[in-house]
Amino acid sequence: MAIGLGIVLIAAGLILLLDVVNIDLSAVNDHALGGILLAVGILAIVVSLIVNQQRTRHTVVEERR
């Protein structure tokens, strides 16, 4: 779920960063917001991959008598 959110944030960040769509945001700098969204999207994907890797790493101890 966080990987999908990261991809959406990266896409929105790149759209704002590369001026694909001209949006008049007078209160916010388009390039700064795009860079922040891009960084947060990458961070969300990295954190999601780390959490998923730790969740799948487990040991099973089987005791037979």
Results as ranks from 00 to 15, higher is better:
V51A: 12
S48M: 02
H31F: 08
V47D: 09
L49Y: 09
I42A: 14
G35D: 14
D30H: 10
N29P: 14
V51H: 08
V46N: 01
Q53K: 07
L17K: 08
I42Q: 03
V51W: 06
V20K: 09
I50H: 03
S26F: 03
T56Y: 04
N29Y: 06
V51P: 00
I45H: 13
L49I: 07
L17A: 10
T56G: 02
G34F: 02
N29K: 13
L38W: 07
L43A: 15
G41Y: 12
A39M: 13
V51S: 06
A32N: 14
L43W: 09
G41E: 14
N22V: 04
Q54E: 07
D19Y: 06
V46G: 04
L43S: 11
S26Q: 09
G35P: 08
I15P: 01
D30L: 00
V51Q: 11
S26P: 07
V21C: 01
D19I: 00
D19W: 02
L43D: 07
V46H: 03
V47Y: 10
L16W: 03
L18R: 11
N52F: 00
G34T: 05
A32K: 08
L37W: 01
A27M: 08
V28L: 15
A44S: 15
S26I: 03
G41S: 08
L38S: 12
D19Q: 14
I15Q: 06
L38M: 14
N52G: 04
S26N: 12
R55A: 11
